[in-house]
Design a protein around this nucleic acid. Structure first.
Lengths: 349, 349
DNA sequence: TCATACTGCCGGAACTGTTCCGGCTTGACC
DNA sequence: GGTCAAGCCGGAACAGTTCCGGCAGTATGA
């Protein structure tokens, strides 16, 4: 077991200096600090008050305080993390990196100062680099809601390709042939998955993909409405649309009600959901659902098991998503709906 | 400053015994433990590793791991708590009481073991007693999203009476006279406030309250639909309804779309919202909005300021709510809508 | 030129709290 | 009455942090 005194001996300084170096106090020369940190890293130093190891994991938000605006997702994920940590009697502390992590401090050093033995990293945009850096230091960590090419990075992510495919297959099964894809215009692995699932289902059924039936817009209700308008203005409009974002789906369904497009009689709609959004719209929409709570649960469970010694080496898990069928999908209509100038609706074969 | 050695001296035992008593180890007699705990309480003992006080507050969930199912509320509140704690550079750790609090352990003792200097208590059902007990021990604490008669209890709660009143006044201003109240059938201070606001607005305008226009049902979409049906079956149905729960409002709006009742042309609806639910329905509904994030922010801000010495004595704050007008309210129709047998809609004067 | 003062860096010691080990007392049992 | 076990407690050794003072090097001023 490593301790400040051991490190002090091996480096040839006093325990006071070791403590200062570890806690980022100014009164240490850069050269001494480096030697101490190196010794701490190589001996796997883990601070402990008294003797008891402190059973706390951190939930790390990379950018500022926890962001709102992700709907239920964060709440559910947090709930899962807390439950997962519970199983091994761990507590959860919320850490935000950019508040008081010193620039010259290593992640390991920082997390030790915070008194956590491991961290769950909430993936936002471009968190992958961060996760790689932390993993490279060897600090126990797992990223949640994103994946990484880096083999050292542990993660739990949603796998939405197969369910996206299943969603489109569902539409094909009930007779739809012109199926549109309305996608968030950001290129990440998640959205690539959804597009891939869409393509696979079409190919499998022997349907040609019509590039005109793929539209992109920012996530959000306005984007959803815009994409709907655009698709319905096509001279041979789709009879079904697959939206890859919850709020886009909401916007599109609202727009349908405004225009008088009857869902699902005139048009079938499948969306995405993280939480309960699909149950708030009219009609409730058929959706590919991510299990946000399950992600949190698995991540925290793996991390705490790994810390208590009873876990496998790495975790690179793709969590399954489910297709929940509600009232926004039904048999392909004989007459499709087309949107004309002046927001006029015409039904045509 | 109090320490284990001071306490050991004053009680007349060894530091080892003090530590054991404080940490709930078995090898201490009940009598000794009592004397130690009493000394710790009276001297305001606060454990510290080394010298530095640990700047962490706890977010306490009384029953088990954090519950999902409150929609955005918890996510937003948490976000607020973290931001509020940020200002004084505090961290937040999530604590669930019924996991590892020993039965014979005081709350103070438990929280010290967890290493937090103060707690924010998330009010669920009947948390008021808990908050009183913690306050009685003198541990720094504040309850969030509920209020208490106990003068020792600090809290931040929503004040929904005045805005409920404003909501009903809004309906009266645009010509409505028969305004119904659809309320969650649980009697707590919060719902009492909403009912009081309703009554005050009616009284102020010289309108008689019709008891037939008050209905109660469980919170949730089904309850909302039931209440809507019941009200519209009245021989002299209301032209506007005030719902005091977000999900009830959702259910009622869905039911309107099913029945062909046009909102707001046939019927005006005002609901409640904690987060973004009002923006998910069609039409988006006019709502009395609680600022969940603001509650969290204020609570954590007060607590951390109080802990760092720059705060007033107690906090008994009622946070303001706001009336957000959306598309579910408009001028009182000349012909009202009545629901007949067989779900037939008739319009009558 | 030399005394003085300041700054950067570090060590000793004193402080915080926890746990191991051993000892004392008490009571039960053969 | 001897023995054993359990309950309770103290000493000491452990964990890490911080205060205070010292040492060296450098700048400053008479």
């Amino acid at each position: 077991m490593s301790s400040v005194r051991k490190i002090a001996n091996s480096v040839g300084v006093s325990v006071a200096t070791v403590s200062r170096a570890l806690n980022n106090h100014p009164d240490v020369s850069a050269e001494t600090r480096q030697r101490v940190l190196e010794a701490a890293r190589s001996t796997g130093y883990n601070p402990s008050v008294g003797k008891r190891p402190t059973n706390v994991i951190g939930l790390v938000y990379p950018t500022g305080p926890v962001q709102a605006g992700y709907g239920d997702f964060d709440s559910l994920m947090l709930s899962g993390v807390v439950r997962g940590a519970n199983e091994q009697r761990f507590d959860v502390t919320i850490i935000n990196l950019d508040r008081d992590k010193d620039e010259f401090e290593s992640y390991t050093q920082f997390f030790h100062r915070k008194g956590v033995r491991g961290v769950v990293i909430r993936a936002l945009e471009a968190t992958s680099v961060l996760a790689s850096e932390i993993a490279a230091e060897g600090f126990p960590s797992i990223m949640i809601a994103d994946r990484s090419e880096d083999p050292r990075v542990n993660f739990v992510d949603s796998e939405s390709k197969s369910t996206s495919r299943k969603a489109v297959e569902h539409l094909i099964d009930i007779g739809h042939k012109r199926i549109a894809l309305a996608i968030h215009n950001v290129q990440d692995s998640d959205h690539q998955d959804r597009e891939d699932g869409y393509c696979q289902a079409l190919a499998e059924a022997g349907l040609e993909r019509d590039e005109d039936l793929t539209v992109r817009a920012p996530a959000g209700p306005e984007g959803g409405a815009m994409m709907l308008d655009h698709l319905l203005q096509h001279e041979d409009p789709p009879t079904a649309i697959f939206f890859t974002n919850p709020l886009s789906t909401v916007g599109a369904l609202h727009r349908c009600l405004q225009l008088g497009v009857r869902v699902p009689k005139d048009l079938s709609v499948i969306g995405f959901d993280d939480g309960d959004v699909r149950l708030r719209t009219f009609p409730n929409f058929t959706a590919v659902c991510q299990d946000a709570q399950g992600l949190g649960l698995e991540a925290a469970r793996w991390l705490t098991r790994s810390l208590t010694g009873n876990a496998h080496h790495s975790c690179r898990e793709l969590h399954r998503t489910t297709l929940n069928v509600h009232g926004s999908t039904s048999l392909c209509p004989i007459t499709g709906v087309r949107l004309m100038a002046g927001n006029q609706i015409v039904r045509q074969v």
